[in-house]
Design a protein around this nucleic acid. Sequence first.
DNA 1: TCTGGGGTCCTAGGACCC
DNA 2: TCTGGGGTCCTAGGACCC
Length: 436
Amino acid sequence: MDNTSLKKIKESRNEIFALVDCNNFYVSCERVFNPVIERKAVVVLSNNDGCIIARSEEAKALGIKMGEPAFRCRDLFEKNDVVAYSSNYTLYDNMSQRVMDILAERCPEVEVYSIDEAFLRLSTMSRFNLDKYARDIRQKVKRWTGIPVSIGIGPTKTLAKGANGLAKRYPLFNGVCDLSNHPDVDKMLERIDVEHIWGVGKAYSRKLFFNGISDACKLKYASDDWVRKHMTIEGLRTVWELRGISCISIKDTLSPKKQIIVSRSFGRQVKKFEELVESVTEYASRAAEKLREQRSCAARISVFLQTNPFRNDPQYHNIATINLVTPTSYTPLIVRRSCEILSRIYRTGYTYKKSGVILSGIIQDNKLQLGLFETGNLNEKHERLMNATDKINRKYGKNSIRLASAGIQQNWTMQSAFRSPFYTTRWEDIPVAILG
DNA sequence: TCTGGGGTCCTAGGACCC
DNA sequence: TCTGGGGTCCTAGGACCC
C-alpha cells in the first residue's frame, strides 16, 4: 500500500455519516394531507400518469413494481382498491424543503442528495450519542412535517446507505441502524445483496454475481485489481467504502449543475412543426431560467426529438447540438437558437412523443471569457429584462410572463388526471380544519 | 388508448497538433 | 515489406444515482 492510500486511511478513520431517507416519500406527502389513505395501497404516477414511481408498503405487498406502466396495473388497482395520484412536484418540493430545514437546524454539514434524501456528517459528534441523536431527528421530522424517515449511520457514505436499507427492511431497528458502532459489520453486510449496494447497478450486479460475489460482504473482500479492471475507479471506491475507508466526502450542495435538461413527453401525439416549436420554446425558456438561478451561462445547446418507441409507427429520433461563440443565459437567444436546431432535425411524416432541450458547457457568469468586442453575457438591457421576468414569475407563479412562441393553448402538455391540490403553496388549496 | 425526468462520472477513441 | 510518436481535447456511450 502506498503513501497516499495510507494517508487516506488515517484521515478517514474518524468519519461518521448518516443518511436520512424519507420513506416512500411521494406517497407519504399525499398521506400527510389525506389521512384517509393511511392504511391503503397508494401509488404515485410519473408525468403523463405513465409509470409508477412511488408505492406505499401496501402497494409493494400487492406486487406492484417500481417503474411499471400504470395502464398494465389497471385491473389490479380496481380489484384491490389502490389509490393512484398524479405526481405533484410542487407539493413534494415544498415538503422536502421542510424536512431539509429541520436537518439543517440540527447538523452543520448537510448534503441534500435528492428530493427525499440527505447525508449528514457527524464526525465531530460523540460516538455514544449517535443513536439517540438519530432517533430524535426522526421523531422531530415526523412530528413537524408528518413525513416518516429512516436513518442509517456508518463510517462511510456507502455504509450509511447500506445501514439505511437495513433500517428500512428490519422492523427491529425501529428506523435507525448504526453500522459505525456494530459488533459484527460483516454479518450485517452479508444481508445486503450486491444489487442493493450504492454504486452497483444492474450491469455490475450481474457481472459480480457471475463471479461469485453475491453480497456486500463478499464485495468488501474482492480483489482490488479485479474490481478496478471490471468496474473502473468508481467501483474500487465503492469497495473501499465498504471496508470503512471514506472515499466520498460530503458535497457542497450549492455546486452548480454542469448540464441542464428540460424535456417532457407530450400528453398526446404531436405531428405539427408549430406545436414542436411551442414545446421547445417552453423547455428552452425553463432551462434558461434554471441557468440564471445558478448564475451561470451555457456555451452549448442541444435539442432532441423522438417518436414513441412503444408504438408500431415509423420511428425517428435525432439530436443536434450547436456551440455558441459567447456563452449566454438570455432566454430569447437560447429559444431562437433552439428552434433553429429543431428545424434542422424535424422531419414530416412522424408522430412525435417527446422533445427536449439540453444546455451544457456551463460556466459561472463571473468566470466568463469575453470576446474582444463583447460586453458580457447579458448587456445591461438584457440583464434588466431577465431580472424582471424572473421576478414576475417567482412572484406570480411560473409562466406568468413568457415568450409568445410557447403558445397559449399548449394542448400538447402532459396529463395529470389525479393530481392532489397544492396544499402548501396555493391559498385556495390550503386545507381547512373543521372543529366538530 | 396508455410506458417519466433529470442528473453525475469514467473511458475509449477520434481529431488535431507538433 | 515498410507506414512516427506522443500529447491534448472533445465527444459518445455506458455505467450509475434518485
